[in-house]
Structures are given as structure tokens and as C-alpha cells.
Design a protein around this nucleic acid. Structure first.
Lengths: 153, 153
DNA sequence: TTCATTTCTTGATCTAGATCAATGCCAGGC
DNA sequence: GCCTGGCATTGATCTAGATCAAGAAATGAA
């Protein structure tokens, strides 16, 4: 299935039982808080999947849309559970474990450096605003962090 | 297997391939950052499991110890992967998803209220210092949040 | 019981990052 | 090619929560 840049695949508040697999392109999931601020939960590029793992009976919390024109596969959550390798899922928990620890203990600078190292291929494809949102800081804060980094070159 | 309050089950930096299941009592996992500050990643009471999902070949990041005298089971990670229900694992991802979103968007007050609602049984069994550490705030900040809450009663 | 250790609270101060605001810039749509 | 709206940068100010400090209350060991 082809989707174009900006196309919404899922909205918070909807019931949704799908998992999206990316063949080419780039998707993201995000929340919008009470103050209207966007927080990116995940990026998914080629070979990755993305979904809101809310209960099947509960409305979703995440929006999912395309950051680039993409080719994706759509599969039912229950169907996917039958096929998925346990190691893939466990690895996902490990990534989230790291993310939680980062958010609890790392400065804006440390988070950005970790992101650069971990997702070098994503860095070039998204705006700084998006990266800031993923890191849990404002675009202004990220801009200043980058300035410091370039000074220290 | 019986362990006493304060007993360490795993240290960061060690290789470890175990998953701990709690039959009675209470365990926790936590990191210590460069400044020496403790950050609690998870609590596990009766019926839950706890582990550092680091790669089998990598050293752990988490310490695991007992907050109460506990009876636990110890199982190898690979062994557990064969047995575990996919829904259990997916649910764990969902919990982490919520946690990440909380850490990115919620104030100390909101985090505390969410914790009270989500883990009412843990609240009574751990110190405020522990709760603060789990929430990613200082004990002082949590104390002030609680004061505000009691004022508003 | 007593002493020591840790926890909780409260106050004073500090700071990383948020917010608000202005400017220049680039990219996409027409 | 020319708008136009979002993006990045920079500066000024603000604020939630951190840090530091000190006393009170709880916990625990001998």
C-alpha cells in the first residue's frame, strides 16, 4: 500500500487494531498533550513496524502518519502476534528501557548525542523540530545544544 | 528461592541472563547515573517478573535488589522466551509506551497522580524516596507535590 | 531504651530548559 | 518566479524542579 507524505494512518481516540510495516519511506507515531504539544514516540523506517499497543478495546493514544512518501504493509495486531519473533519484541522492550532511563537521567545534550549514535540514518531525514520532539525538548533547546556542539567541534 | 530485604540479585556491569519472578515480596530494578543518582526503572510485586533485557552478550545496565523479604523464582532468559505469552510481552511494551509519554509530557504532579492510580498496592509498600526516583523527580519535589495535593484535599 | 541512620519536610537559592518574541531562511504551491 | 508558511536561530525572560542546607520524625539495631 502506498501513502503520501503527511498522510494520517491512525488518530488518537480511534479504535485501531493495525500494525504498520514500512517497506520504503518513513512513518512516525506521536501524542498531543493537553497543551497541544506534540511528542514523537517513535520513528519507523525501512524494515521496521509501528503501532499503538493500546488494548484492542481501548481508544488509541497515538497518531501515526507518514513523514515521507512510503510503501507500507498493514496487518492486524492479533495476526501479527501469531507471526512475530519473540526476540524482536524483547528487543523493543530493551530500546524502551534505554529510552526511559535516558528521559530520567540524561541532559538535552546527552540525549541528542545518543540519538545521533543510535539513529544516524534517521537524523538526515527529519527536521530538527522532529528530533527535538522525540528527545523531549523544545526546538530552541536543541538548536542551542547543536550550537554548543559545533563550537566544541 | 528466598531472599532478604536489601539483597542484591544483579549488578550493572555484570553479564546476566536471568529473569526473576516474584512469588511473594517486592523487587526493584534501577540504574545509577554518572552523578551517582539512583533511578528506579521498575518495581515487581507478587505475580510479576523483572529483568534487565540487555543483550545476552552485553553487560547489564540495571541493578536488581529486594525491597522486602521475598520468595522468587529464577529462570534463564532464553528459557523464558520459549514459555512467555506474547500478550504479556506486548502489554509490557504498552506500559513502557505510557511511561515514555509521561516522562516527555507530564509534570511531577501528573506523574504522581498517575502512579497512585496505576500502582495503588505499591504506594503503601515503598518510601517516597523510591516513588520519587521512579517518577524521575527528587524526593523534595515529591514532598512538595504531596503537600499541594493535601492542601487541595 | 538509647543511639544512629535514614526519611521526610521546609526554606533559600540556583539552573536547565521552557516560553515568548523577532528575524532570516528555505521549500513548496500556484 | 513569487508568495507564503513552516523551520532554524538568537535573544530576553520565566519557571518547574534541582540543589543545598538544616531540623524533625520515623526506623532499626544493639
Amino acid at each position: 500500500m502506498k501513502v503520501i507524505k503527511g498522510q494520517m494512518l491512525q488518530r488518537a481516540g480511534e479504535l485501531n487494531t493495525k500494525v504498520f510495516g514500512v517497506e520504503t519511506g518513513l512513518l512516525r507515531s506521536y501524542t498531543i498533550d493537553e497543551k497541544g504539544k506534540e511528542h514523537i514516540f517513535a520513528f519507523a523506517n525501512e524494515g521496521w513496524t509501528i503501532a499503538d499497543l493500546c488494548e484492542v478495546t481501548d481508544p488509541c493514544e497515538l497518531f501515526i502518519d507518514a513523514l515521507e512518501d512510503s510503501t507500507i504493509t498493514v496487518i492486524d495486531k492479533e495476526e501479527r502476534k501469531k507471526q512475530v519473533d519473540i526476540n524482536t519484541v524483547v528487543n523493543r522492550i530493551f530500546v524502551l528501557q534505554k529510552r526511559v532511563i535516558m528521559l530520567m537521567s540524561a541532559s538535552a545534550l546527552e540525549r541528542y548525542q545518543h540519538f545521533l549514535k543510535t539513529y544516524p540514518n534517521i537524523v538526515q531525514r527529519v527536521s530538527q523540530k522532529m528530533i527535538a520532539s522525540y528527545l523531549g525538548v523544545t526546538p530552541e533547546a536543541l538548536s542551542r545544544v547543536r550550537k554548543e556542539l559545533s563550537k566544541a567541534e
